[in-house]
């Protein structure tokens, strides 16, 4: 018993060391989304391309898809744009866009110049939908299932590595719905 007591400080040290070691590897800027497993919030916003067409949360239902928050003022969005084009064109994945606090003209010009990976783009000029989604920095990419429920959220650029992760989640969702 006495011997054991002598080892208590060592045990505490090892446990704390392990905890801190793990803490070093975590990214503190990555917030867990509060909306995982919740449907996309209700909205009623115009389409980017067609001012007269109003879009709602029901337009995001139908099949598993990505929902990408972007803007022309966001440099990282430009960085990920080629990857999004690749995902949409080569992998045939549906990508919805939210044009977040942007100017319509600049956004249209951007899509014309860098090609358009989006099936449809929601024009969120005031950032109201962004606020309801808990967007805190563009770009953000959500994985939606066929019912428009948010299954995963990624903050930051989508690159090859992130796409692999998103792809497995998309595959999981489609096997779920089949089974």
């Amino acid at each position: 018993m006495r011997r054991f007591i002598l080892f208590i400080p060592l045990i505490i040290f090892v446990v704390m060391g392990a905890l801190f070691w793990k803490g070093l590897g975590l990214d503190p800027t990555e917030l867990p989304s509060a909306l995982i497993d919740k449907p996309v919030p209700d909205f009623n916003l115009p389409s980017l391309v067609d001012d007269n067409r109003m879009l709602t949360q029901n337009d995001l239902k139908g099949k598993p898809a990505l929902l990408n928050v972007w803007a022309t003022w966001c440099p990282t969005c430009k960085q990920e744009h080629a990857q999004l084009n690749k995902i949409a064109r080569e992998e045939g994945v549906t990508i919805y866009g939210i044009n977040y606090k942007d100017e319509r003209g600049a956004a249209k010009e951007w899509l014309r110049r860098y090609r358009d990976p989006y099936v449809v783009n929601i024009f969120d000029e005031q950032g109201a939908l962004g606020l309801d989604l808990g967007v805190y920095g563009a770009p953000e990419t959500y994985v939606l299932d066929a019912n428009g429920v948010i299954r995963y959220k990624h903050v930051g650029a989508v690159d090859e590595k992130v796409w692999l992760k998103l792809e497995t989640i998309l595959q999981q969702i489609s096997t779920e719905s089949q089974g």
Binding site: L31, P32, S33, A34, L35, L131, D132, L133, G134, Y136
Partner: peptide
């Protein structure tokens, strides 16, 4: 706020 951004 918590509903959108979490307890954080």
């Amino acid at each position: 706020m918590v509903a959108r951004y979490g307890e954080f």
